[in-house]
Design a protein around this nucleic acid. Structure first.
Lengths: 117, 117
DNA sequence: CAGTATCCACAGTGATACTG
DNA sequence: CAGTATCACTGTGGATACTG
């Protein structure tokens, strides 16, 4: 087997889980929702209040996606009117490290780009 | 100032650099290109060979984006026909940690999701 | 070899109005 | 309160053909 093929295989194999991770976090509001929920359990309206400009439709959709990926837990309370609580699952909490890394790198990148101008 | 407002401000401030980071990595092929270049300096065609199904148009576009963000360096050689080399800048190399984190988390996520089924 | 030009399809998002 | 329904728009990405 030639070296290029090995390289290609290694490249593809290395990408798969990275792509998986990005797929899950994809969507304009997903990270914002997770960051909001890192501060604790919240209701639909409270998350909306945390995130400027998100619409009900998008918040609802993104929360559903996150729930499907077992990152967010949805709890319905039989009050009237109905209240719904959202919280991060244990698995969702494991994103904290990545978010911290992204924040540090993003800040460094911003500094870097500004310095070049 | 009420606690909710503080929470909201903290949430927004915490999100900004995270969003910046994701913005830079956004695009279907950007991570794949970076992973490819983590293996060393490559020519246009070599990157294309590393990444199955990417088209010339998209590869060209994504490389331009990465170059604008100072993550990739483009070097033209006056051979005939012309050859072009791409490599990660020092700044681009700093993504290695994030990519590793994403890979680890992505693998864990895949295991987690499979376990739930 | 390393791209560019053109056209097109569709996923993602926004705006607005409505509901149990 | 916590959503859903509908419509409209826009950008991203694919296919194909062409070029210095």
């Amino acid at each position: 087997m030639t070296e290029e093929i090995l390289d290609k295989k290694a490249c593809v194999a290395a990408m798969l889980p990275v792509t998986d991770a990005l797929e899950v976090l994809r969507g304009k509001w997903k990270l914002a929702i997770i960051v909001s929920l890192l501060h604790g359990t919240k209701r639909f309206g409270q998350i909306a209040a945390d995130i400027p400009k998100v619409t009900d439709r998008m918040l609802s959709k993104e929360l559903k996606d996150l729930e499907m990926n077992h990152l967010v837990k949805r709890t319905i309370h039989n009050t009237f009117p109905v209240t719904v609580e959202y919280s991060l699952t244990e698995h969702g909490q494991t994103l904290r490290g990545i978010i911290t890394e992204l924040r540090i790198w993003g800040q460094a990148h911003r500094d870097h780009i500004i310095a070049k101008q």
